[in-house]
């Protein structure tokens, strides 16, 4: 058997070349994850030089079972699931619809693709600022629109349910472009001959979509569903930028950030609780793991059934 890197010590070359990458993977990704797991059993504050004591499952007990705060945490967990479900399904459906439209051989499709993708490149802060201005309740464009119908709203600063719904909307608006691009890439791999054959057989548009496009889009469907589900379960930045720490709007990701960095009390002298936040992170990790693995197993089986 020929081996590109030769024999003897030379066999080590590819492994040595992998080492820098592995080093950074451990340093930046796996290492902190393991450290987070470890810190979740401590009272770490995140302050250099502060003592770190092993406290067993106290953080988990407090997060899941202690007083009313644990019920608030479970509410945040439920809100995370609602957020993820709505974002995943709506973003997926809209992304597919838009991809199907802009994949047609029509005029200006490239311009429309760019327009739909543009929010993705803006960054969370810009996205948040744009929508804060758009939803400014004191004469912003949306307030003026509502005023035409004799209505008004505080939008992001009003009822928690409404504010939460706006974050879902902005999240979908901000990320739909990625979903669309993945679908466009998938659509362009489908051979034109299959469409031609289907039409010769007399298939209508719906039958073409159902029997040609949808099955052959399976890899893109799987990628999008997984990315949307995992991304939305971990979302927190838009909550920070659009709402800040407000009762009745937190999702688990934002709760972790706010707890870890002492932003839950509204006081500028609050406490750093990174051990506790680490325990909350592990709860979120387990949630993502269970949902992600279940979804992946289901999608892989489906892919095998459809594509063989």
């Amino acid at each position: 058997m020929s081996y590109h890197f030769g024999r003897g010590w030379s066999k080590l070359t590819p492994y040595l070349l992998l080492l820098p990458g592995l080093f950074f993977y451990f340093l930046i990704s796996l290492g902190p994850s393991i450290a987070t797991f470890f810190f979740s059993f401590t009272d770490a504050t995140g302050i250099k030089g502060a003592p770190v004591n092993w406290i067993g499952f106290d953080n988990y007990r407090e997060f899941l079972f202690m007083g009313r705060a644990s019920i608030d945490n479970l509410d945040a967990l439920k809100r995370t699931l609602i957020f993820s479900f709505v974002v995943t399904t709506v973003q997926f459906a809209l992304g597919l619809l838009v991809a199907l439209i802009v994949n047609q051989k029509l005029k200006f499709t490239n311009i429309f693709r760019t327009i739909y993708f543009m929010p993705v490149i803006l960054g969370v802060v810009i996205q948040g600022l744009m929508w804060s201005l758009f939803l400014y309740p004191l004469g912003g464009p949306m307030a003026k629109l509502l005023a035409l119908f004799g209505m008004r709203s505080e939008f992001l600063g009003g009822q928690p349910a409404e504010a939460f719904a706006w974050v879902i909307f902005v999240q979908i608006w901000a990320n739909m472009g990625i979903t669309m691009m993945i679908f466009i890439a998938g659509l362009q791999t489908i051979p034109v001959e299959l469409y031609e054959a289907a039409r010769i057989d007399g298939a209508n548009a719906w039958q073409v979509f159902k029997n040609v496009t949808w099955p052959l889009l399976t890899p893109s469907v799987n990628t999008n569903l997984l990315l949307n589900a995992i991304g939305s379960l971990q979302a927190w930045q838009l909550f920070l930028v659009l709402l800040g720490y407000r009762n009745g709007t937190q999702v688990l990701g934002y709760l972790i950030y706010a707890t870890g960095f002492g932003q839950t009390s509204g006081s500028v002298t609050s406490t750093f609780r990174q051990g506790y936040a680490a325990a909350a992170s592990i709860v979120l990790f387990l949630l993502v793991l269970v949902i992600g693995m279940t979804l992946q197993t289901f999608l892989q089986r489906r892919e095998k059934r459809i594509l063989g």
Binding site: E62, G67, I71, D72, N247, G248, S265, G266, S267
Partner: peptide
């Protein structure tokens, strides 16, 4: 607010 420290386990409306 300069004196207040919330007890652990207090709910989010305890202010």
């Amino acid at each position: 607010e300069q004196y207040w420290v919330a007890p652990k386990g207090a709910g989010q409306y305890a202010n």
